[in-house]
């Protein structure tokens, strides 16, 4: 009798578990809708792109015959594509270190408490939260060679009017975009690094001070390693944003003069929505995804972000 009770209970346990069907599957029930949407909008387009990238679809012809790697081969011969990749790399390589160093310096400046610090910090946040489109538009106004305040200020320092054609002159267009970019995102670095620095255990630096270490040594040997994990994440977030750079280029230069400031995102857009090279755009999009996937995977692995 006892024997049968036990075995039937065991079956009960194996079959239903605590709380029966409803609660057993609760964790999937609450997860499912979000995953469904992510698959629909995140994964489906990628799969679709992958398929189309092996076909010959353009605006003119819905030619879905198999093109093999023709579109991918075309990528390698497309000089404008490689230039846009180079432009993207240049923006990232200059903007990221600049934002990091400026952000760190500003964080140091505001690290010690001082009355009114909250107000300064609150004001400094503003550039980061406004739309990049608005930022680009606003800087275009600021850079205007006649009505803009930038040339005016430079003129004061030079002692004579200096009509720099910021976004038309090939020499100044990169600095113009970079200034806008660094203006908008240095506060982002600043905020994160300020928080990270504030979280550094005071006793660590004090112990080093007692041991007679110089300020510079304390900073490089103790403070930097302590904030590195946070810094790494900030670099990753900003780095990925820079690889995807699109908005401020759109509103500041439209990729010009000529194609001088086209980024990879911008060029992909042009191919897709001006030229309607559907299959070719799909291949290009895939190149971008592959590139980012490699970067993200490496970065996540190296930084151990996936707690």
């Amino acid at each position: 009798m006892t024997q049968t009770t036990t075995s039937s209970t065991e079956r009960l346990v194996a079959g239903r578990g605590i709380g029966g069907f409803g609660e057993r599957h609760f964790k999937y029930t609450v997860l499912a809708p979000a995953i469904f949407i992510l698959l629909l909008i995140g994964l489906f387009p990628l799969v679709y792109s992958l398929i189309v990238s092996f076909q010959r679809v353009t605006m003119m012809s819905a030619d879905t015959s198999f093109a093999g790697f023709a579109n991918y081969a075309k990528l390698f011969a497309d000089a404008r594509l490689w230039e846009s990749l180079l432009h993207t790399a240049i923006f990232a390589a200059i903007a990221l270190p600049l934002e990091l160093v400026l952000g760190l310096a500003m964080a140091q400046l505001f690290l010690e408490r001082m009355p009114g610090r909250q107000v300064f910090v609150a004001l400094l946040v503003l550039p980061t939260v406004i739309s990049p489109i608005v930022a680009g538009a606003n800087w275009r106004l600021m850079f205007d060679h006649r009505f803009g305040p930038i040339n005016q200020v430079i003129g004061w320092f030079m002692g004579e009017p200096t009509p720099i054609l910021w976004i038309i002159n090939p020499l100044t267009v990169y600095p113009a975009i970079l200034i806008c970019e660094v203006w908008q995102w240095t506060p982002f670095m600043f905020l994160i690094l300020l928080a990270a620095l504030s979280n550094v255990d005071k006793s660590l630096t004090e112990a080093a001070e007692i041991d007679g270490a110089s300020q510079w040594r304390i900073f490089t040997r103790i403070v930097l390693p302590a904030i590195w994990p946070v810094m790494a994440i900030a670099i990753l977030i900003r780095g990925l944003d820079l690889v995807r750079l699109f908005d401020i280029v759109w509103s500041l230069t439209r990729g010009g003069p000529g194609t001088m400031t086209e980024t990879i995102s911008y060029y992909t857009y042009v191919q897709g929505f001006s030229q309607f090279e559907i299959s070719y755009t799909a291949a290009m999009a895939f190149l971008v995804v592959a590139l980012l996937t490699v970067i993200v995977t490496l970065a996540l692995k190296r930084m151990g972000i996936a707690r």
Binding site: T5, T6, E10, V13, R16, G17, I18, G19, G20
Partner: peptide, 23 residues
């Protein structure tokens, strides 16, 4: 309490097997 599920065996409270009952 029912916060963990036993991998094997039975739990009875007041003569009632409660393995499958939520807390």
């Amino acid at each position: 309490a029912g916060l963990e599920e036993a991998d094997a065996g039975t739990v009875a409270i007041g003569g009632q097997v409660v393995n499958h009952l939520p807390p």
